[in-house]
Amino acid sequence: MIREITIGQYYPADSFIHRLDPRVKIVCTLLFLISLFIQNSLLGYLIATVFLAFVIHASKVPFKFIIKGLKAIILLLMFTVVMNLFLTKDGAVLVRFWIFQITEGGLKLSVFMAVRLIYLIIGSSLMTLTTTPNALTDGIESLLRPLNKFRVPVHEVAMIMSIALRFIPILLEETDKIMKAQIARGADLESGNILQRTKAMVPVLVPLFVSAFRRANDLALAMEARCYFGGEGRTKMKPLLYRRQDYLAYAFVAAYVVVAFVVGRFVPFHIWIF
């Protein structure tokens, strides 16, 4: 099941988007998300669609792969659509049956909300699909560096994130090993209701935690032995440097946001109720 979620997965390819500085991708994704929320018109969404289609094409990530990421939010999506559809009372009533009624405003809101959510997920998964987890943590570290002034341990948090990323596969493998070991001892991990199955996980989780702490201790020793004394005085093997293409990308996305905002807000263009 874990494998089905594409959010947070990296799709290796060699494209313009892949080569961009991670900071550019993080900032631009945020800008795109903001652009979805500062306007609320058909034309604005059309522009967003064109922009997204262009970026997806440039990223060389197969469209199918991106769509897979939406599976994870289908429930949430349906929930929002249904709630907005039936609970918004705004404008003329379109359909009425029993105690339910769908109004013009409700239909408009639910459709726009659904589009917003879908674009939001596609936009952010595009970022993670085209950026290695390492580059992503580097980017976050670099962007959050100003917080150092407020005594936020930015370097440490980034280090923790990248170590976590390194140990996820190791701990997954270990979980698998422990599960098999417990099954071999007669543990039943698969039958029963949710409560029973959760209970059956205890003999898996306890050794997993013990081993995780042991690993953490070993790793801390190994890091100290290699002269790790925290972020101060460290140099970088792969420092982040803005290149021409990164400025171009910034300019392009900024232009998109301005156009989407101005056109979406001020150009009157309506089809039916939208």
């Binding site: 390492n134 170590i163 390194r166 790793l219 032995a225 290699r226 790790y228 004394f229 460290r234 140099t235």
Partner: peptide, 29 residues
């Protein structure tokens, strides 16, 4: 320099070359 027993628990980087670079990075090279 020190090399430990457990190969998994002393590799810090997610890519081989980045792990090798970890020590020099700490030294401020």
């Amino acid at each position: 320099g020190m090399v430990f027993q457990n190969p998994d628990n002393q590799i810090i980087g997610t890519v081989v070359e980045e792990d090798v670079g970890f020590g020099p990075e700490n030294l401020g090279v």
